[in-house]
């Protein structure tokens, strides 16, 4: 059984026009967003789940305004993490439901661009949910939105880190049975730094701290984002090959 196995792919894309970079990434993200809105299955369910969750958390932690205010940043990010785990499967769920994953993998060139396209799609979904969530937490948990540009920046950095990992694991588990259970199990321990840093930055901004005071948390988020986007995009082609 000690046979060697190798695959050599020589100039496989030789006859193709050289258009492999960014356009394909954007087309893939745009296509998936269009499909997601037409199918309507995932996004609406996630937003309603969040609304219910916020109500329950509000009942459990309230009704004192000071208690709710103190809990708001944690509630925001834990809810986003939960909603994210619901949505994480969507990046490849679309392909698996329609059976189109093979066709996507057959597109010429190396596979990193698929990761970036799916990552962008996941990021857009998460940002949409995060915006809804910001408004809801502001209403139900009195999270002050005064420093909204800085809050949005925090949300942006946090969702990048989350999407980087969730996209990778969604691709890795795409063809497995039981992926709905495995995905959160693998995802949550890894995103602890994202949730912690984002909660602290949000809490700082909610208390009205100057931006310089939360910049350390942004830096941690940036490091996390850079490391995981790089490593995940490098490992991704391996995760998808048959």
């Amino acid at each position: 059984m000690n046979r060697t196995s190798q695959v050599s792919v020589t100039s496989r894309s030789g006859a193709q026009p050289a258009l492999f970079g960014l356009p394909r990434v954007f087309w893939l993200a745009w296509r998936d967003l269009t499909l997601e809105f037409r199918g309507r299955a995932g996004l609406l369910a996630a937003v309603f789940f969040l609304a219910t969750m916020l109500l329950i958390l509000g009942l459990a932690l309230g009704p004192l305004r000071s208690d709710l205010e103190k809990a708001a940043p944690g509630v925001l990010w834990v809810s986003l993490a939960f909603a994210g785990s619901l949505l994480a499967g969507r990046a490849f769920g679309l392909e698996v439901e329609d059976g189109t994953l093979d066709d996507l993998l057959l597109t010429p060139g190396s596979k990193e661009w698929i990761y970036f396209g799916k990552f962008l799609f996941q990021l857009m979904l998460l940002l949409l949910v995060a915006l809804a969530l910001l408004v809801m937490t502001a209403g139900l948990f009195y999270l002050p939105l005064k420093a909204w540009p800085a809050l949005l920046f925090t949300v942006f950095l946090g969702t990048i880190g989350y999407a980087a990992i969730s996209t990778f694991y969604a691709g890795l588990l795409a063809r497995l049975r039981g992926r709905e259970v495995l995905l959160p199990l693998l995802l949550f321990p890894l995103v602890v730094p994202v949730v912690l840093a984002a909660v602290r930055a949000t809490a700082g901004l909610a208390q009205g701290l100057p931006v310089a005071e939360v910049a350390d948390w942004w830096r941690l988020l940036l490091v996390f984002d850079a490391v995981y986007v790089t490593v995940c995009s490098l490992l991704f082609p391996l995760a998808l090959e048959g």
């Binding site: 196995s5 020589t10 093979d102 066709d103 057959l106």
Partner: peptide, 21 residues
């Protein structure tokens, strides 16, 4: 098509594959 990797031996391509499943 390249969708599967061989367990043994080699396979060499020179051109894009298209697949009708």
């Amino acid at each position: 098509s390249g969708l599967l990797r061989p367990t043994a031996g080699t396979i060499t391509h020179s051109g894009t594959p298209g697949f009708v499943a």
